[in-house]
Design a protein around this nucleic acid. Structure first.
Lengths: 192, 192
DNA sequence: TCCTTCTGTCTGTGCACTTGACATCTGGGA
DNA sequence: TCCCAGATGTCAAGTGCACAGACAGAAGGA
């Protein structure tokens, strides 16, 4: 069940994603070349299509992996505080700080009329939201014993959307935004 | 020329060698099971045969890799001294010390009437000698400018055989043996 | 003596990657 | 305006590699 072939398949996918990641960071979605991803990985162009379907599939896969990594970090911030409100504040601040340094996000939101990749954070943001919910809801339901599950999910959803909005369209500094959101949502969580 | 498939093939071989190495260290040549090597690597038994031909081929391949690694270290000792005699002494001492700690050698020479693997150091020692010559002659010809190439090779050959003999059948302590050989070969090298 | 276990070999099968060709679209230049 | 270069996406045929499964033969143990 963990054959050499399985590991090889996983490794191939990872290396393709690495190559695609580099290409996107360097030149955005438009600068991404299917043939180049294959060449850099030492594999044919067709193999890239076999793995991801089409070019948009490559971008989605890269974004999904990046989102997972992102969330590991954000979740850690959330876990560092027993108090829900405090955890929320820390997680939001961490997320905004991470986002501002993230090469992929920077490439997606880079100046030239905004890259098509930016749609993953806006009009096609479904995947990011769902992945984030999967990761965060699980944690929140387990560690916020005093908050009803539905309320916790609602809270996560609102915070998520606000954070996403600030990533695409920055407002105040991360710490300020985090404090703001925590203050607004605090009473709701306390009354639950 | 460095396709993903090529890298995968190399990796497969390395992992097979790792599994075989562990098996030999644990149970000697007799304890080595072709099926187990495949299983541990996540590959079929047939694939092990495809890669190495037969069981003896596995042992040879493991020994060859180990020999190469061994020689990197010995060569380094040789390179640490500009003076041929001093280099020879250091290399011999290093080789004997490494050998006494080497798990593979220990397994091959372990008590039970000596494992079949020990033949690689005795009656079937050709491969080890040739590999060693390849590595050491090149270095010696380059770094011993005052010694004729043929004399250098002769010297390496004699030292090699003495060292091999001491590995199989230990005599005095490494430092003593090294000093001995260096003293005996010194005049020959100096007269060249 | 039977039974188990391991080596070594062979055959056919399936999968994944490759190759090469092709239709289509788009932007740039003569 | 026309043409062409370069890109995406699709397809079919070819190929290499590992796998499954079976078998013979040797060795060792109950």
């Amino acid at each position: 069940m963990d054959s050499f072939a399985d590991r090889t398949k996983r490794r191939l996918r990872e290396e393709l994603l690495d190559a695609a990641y580099d290409a996107i960071v360097a030149g955005g979605y438009d600068g991404l070349r299917m043939a180049e991803v294959g060449r850099r990985t030492g594999v044919s162009r067709q193999t890239v299509y076999n793995e991801f379907g089409d070019k948009w599939g490559v971008l989605q896969a890269v974004a999904a992996r990046e989102t997972e990594r992102f969330l590991v970090d954000v979740n850690a911030a959330l876990a560092e505080h027993a108090d829900p409100i405090e955890g929320l504040r820390a997680a939001i601040e961490r997320a905004l700080n991470l986002a501002s340094d993230n090469p992929l996000i920077k490439a997606a939101l880079g100046q030239p009329g905004s890259d098509q990749a930016s749609q993953l954070l806006t009009t096609r943001g479904q995947q990011v939201l769902e992945l984030s919910h999967q990761r965060l809801d699980a944690h929140v339901r387990e560690h916020w014993p005093d908050v009803p599950a539905d309320d916790a999910t609602t809270c996560v959803d609102i915070a998520l959307r606000v954070v996403l909005s600030h990533i695409v369209n920055p407002g105040a500094a991360p710490a300020v935004v985090a404090e703001q959101v925590a203050r607004v949502l605090g009473p709701f969580l306390s009354n639950s």
